[in-house]
Design a protein around this nucleic acid. Structure first.
Lengths: 241, 241
DNA sequence: ATACGCAAATTTGTATACATTATGGTTTGA
DNA sequence: TCAAACCATAATGTATACAAATTTGCGTAT
């Protein structure tokens, strides 16, 4: 799960890592059909490396739940049913709810509080204009990711952080447009963030948990609403929220 | 996370697998000090295999969160603070609570209901005698594991099942005696199971979630109570519950 | 004495050859 | 015609040699 230590050290990257990232992007962008075999030699040719780092990357992807593995049979692209995608949101809801509760129980460090306030401030600025352009999407994604990740960090549990990460990289049935991006939708999510922040700062663990759970469940329903129209596969990593 | 498909197929085991299990047992039994390096060549000599399967096993252990990995620096035994162990129970509580809720929402299949009833029945029989001998511990462990795992299966989410598995193999600071095993403690846990079962069968999702969460939190406090006395490191896999 | 830098030794990363297992098509028998 | 066994092919599993990086220790200079 954790794979690399979030270490301070330099730890220069290896070939396995870059192959892993390339393969993960390919998987999340739907370049492999569900059930399709990922054969080592083929990938070796496509990616320009020997079998060793390719095998390592495949193993990591299987550990992340993106591929199925059977000994002596190799790796296959995993199928993600709609139900499993919905369940991923349910799992994420209870995990992020727990993170918010723990953050409220422990209290925020000065750095974490500043980071959260910054995220909220950035969101305010983005929404102030009254309209959102396509370009704002990636910007809000970053703001949103910063907000959530700060809370995960403030919760102080590595296991929790890693598990949320796993939830967030489940491929969802949807191409470019993950969730609605109308002004009122982003407004709603931003308000959710505001309330969660208030509950954490106010040291109200139960309220923080409940609000964060409800926030993620709202994202789930937004995802479901945007489902029937689209078909491809993409990740929601740093997109929904 | 998932690693192997819970496949029906035969899929005969490989050397990587047996090395992995040996290493995991060693790790969970505290044969490596926190922070200790696990060097490939040393393990190669001890385990009687080449570096390739040893590396694969180490990578899996890191994915399971038991080892730390830094590229070009290798693997180290991870440190588990008391806080992290406690958090693992908190994570497990919300996850198993979710599993119980989903099971209640979906309803139990005939097989799952029968399996749960069997577990409860077995527990009744074990408690009927009025006293528990040391030998009953492993028996109750099996009964308990069956009960919980059936609910995970009934929840129908592979991600959820895999994450609970990760929670349950966190090493906890405690050797043989994981949690209290007095008659009244087992009685309490058995009653919890009974109530969770009733809530699921009665299709009361919220109640099932709440009861299961509270059940696991009770296990957490039992673990904490039994902490100061002991020092070694062992897994709670299939032990607490 | 301490700090710096270089070089040897150790360790991890990668490529590749070989072993083992699965797969697919063909043949052979009923 | 069908089915089962068999062989050829191709895939995965393992061992090992080599490359690159890190670590260690020594030597030197300040």
């Amino acid at each position: 799960m954790n794979q690399r230590l979030a270490n301070t050290s330099l730890a220069q990257s290896t070939r396995s890592d870059s192959i892993f990232e390339k393969l993960r992007d390919a998987v999340l962008n739907g370049q492999f059909a569900p059930g399709e075999r990922l054969q080592e030699v083929r990938l070796t040719e496509q990616l320009g490396a020997s079998r060793t780092p390719v095998r390592a990357a495949l193993q990591k992807l299987a550990s992340d739940g993106l591929l199925d593995y059977v000994p002596n049979h190799g790796y296959r692209m995993r199928e993600f049913s709609v139900a499993e995608i919905v369940y991923a949101f349910e799992v994420r809801a209870v995990l992020e709810g727990l993170a918010a509760r723990l953050a409220a129980e422990r209290g925020l460090s000065a750095e974490h509080q500043t980071a959260l306030e910054q995220s909220l401030c950035d969101g305010d600025r983005l929404l102030a204009a009254g309209v959102l352009v396509q370009q704002d999407r990636v910007l809000y994604s970053a703001i949103n990711a910063a907000f959530h990740e700060t809370i995960h960090a403030a919760a102080g549990s590595r296991m929790l952080r890693d598990m949320v990460r796993l939830c967030r990289q489940v491929p969802i049935s949807s191409p470019r447009i993950i969730v609605e991006f109308e002004h009122r939708d982003v407004r709603r999510r931003h308000d959710d963030h505001q309330r969660v922040f208030e509950a954490i700062v106010g040291r109200e663990p139960w309220r923080a948990e409940m609000l964060m759970r409800d926030h993620v469940i709202y994202l789930k329903s937004a995802m479901i609403r945007s489902l029937p129209l689209r078909g491809l596969t993409r990740t929601l990593e740093a997109s929904a929220g």
